[in-house]
Amino acid sequence: MTHLASICLLLLKIHTMKSCAGVSLKTQELYALVFVTRYLDLFSNFVSMYNTIMKIIFLSSTFGIIWYMRGHKLVRQSYDKEQDTFRHYFLVIPCMVLALVIHSKFTLLEVLWTFSIYLEAVAILPQLVLLQRTRNIDNLTGNYIFCLGAYRALYLLNWIYRYFMEKNYHAQWITWMAGMIQTAIYADFFYYYFKSWKKNERLKLPA
């Protein structure tokens, strides 16, 4: 739900302000790759209606955001292309190599799923780099990134709960480790987010 909220915040910003200033297209494209490689079981593995609908929402909204940033006449103009310089392959290749080395089963679907877990953990990095270069971070962008970081932190709590409360729940070391790293990457952002919130000031990251 926090993940869904983050997407709603981002779409709200882009749609109402007709601007994607401070939003990293690189991070959005990495997320698109995360969802495509993770949800390859969309039609073969039915978990629940909720699960299927959320997968479709995550996939379609991410491609919608990318379309807005690349294709919409007004939104495209507000994109900070010169600042958003992080290279995709810098993250994609190491994650692919890691997925080929550390996975639970050597099948195409499993390796791609593991890749998506690793890539998700670091997909925020281009956004954080852009954020640091952005002078005026608007509230919606700040809250968007906060929610995007919070959902994995909440997963950590959920994993602990499931581990102790669910009889047939098995240890998932790949997901847990990647989730911990993903949350840790946000630690610095969370610190400045709460600091600015407490002081009632505009969010600003130190250079």
Partner: peptide, 10 residues
């Protein structure tokens, strides 16, 4: 039971 390949999370 739930194994790594029976994924129920998003």
């Amino acid at each position: 039971h739930l194994t790594e390949s029976e994924k129920d999370e998003l």
